[in-house]
């Protein structure tokens, strides 16, 4: 309000110039996927919990991919909702990655809908503690999560409570440590 007043009081020429300058600074085109992201956030908030969504943003580097960060305790419920939801039907889990950010872990799920014509993919991230990392397993929702979660458990040491068979998959069973952690030190003296 105060800004507008200030403008009217100024000399019209100068005011116009100022507006133009402001426009130059503020031109930020909303992403074409912004509406989709907002819908997704609303859906999670209204169906799961107000504080289920920690962060939501558009990943401009990755073809404007809508990405949201879900708080870990709500993840399993959210996953079920996303799969069953009439509008989204996110029934295809295409990729699961685990990342060690040194102060915390992050597991990234890339989802897609095979049932609707609008095959928009979305990205969901869950953060986990560095000390005792644990994220609810979604193998009961998407079967494909099974081996993917085992791989992340094996290489990064993130626990997935609710997983039917959380064992090492790449490394031998008696292997010590989790190789993809940033602070991993190989114990084999011959290597």
């Amino acid at each position: 309000m105060s800004d507008q007043k200030h403008v009217t009081e100024m000399d019209p020429k100068e005011a116009k110039k100022e507006i133009e300058e402001n426009e130059v600074v503020e031109i930020v085109e909303p992403s074409p996927n912004q509406a989709k992201l907002d819908r997704l956030v609303d859906l999670v908030k209204s169906n799961i919990a107000e504080d289920a969504v920690e962060e939501a943003y558009i990943n401009e580097l990755d073809r404007d991919l809508p990405s949201i960060v879900i708080r870990s305790p709500y993840w399993l419920k959210t996953a079920m909702m996303l799969k069953e939801s009439e509008t989204l039907k996110l029934n295809y889990l295409r990729n699961v990655s685990g990342i060690d950010y040194e102060t915390y872990f992050e597991v990234v799920y890339y989802l897609l809908s095979m049932s609707t014509d609008n095959q928009q993919d979305i990205c969901i991230k869950i953060k986990a503690d560095r000390e005792d990392p644990s994220i609810p397993s979604v193998t009961s929702v998407w079967n494909t999560a099974n081996w993917n979660e085992r791989e992340i458990y094996d290489l990064l040491g993130i626990q997935f409570p609710g997983h039917p068979n959380l064992k090492r998959i790449m490394m031998p069973e008696d292997w010590e440590g989790h190789p993809l952690r940033k602070d991993y030190e190989p114990i084999d003296p011959e290597v």
Binding site: R94, N95, V108, C123
Partner: peptide
């Protein structure tokens, strides 16, 4: 930043994150 690209390999969807 991060990116996930995927292409159709003869065996299916190969992706790179």
């Amino acid at each position: 930043g991060e990116v996930y690209t995927r292409i159709e390999s003869p065996r299916g969807e190969i992706g790179c994150h």
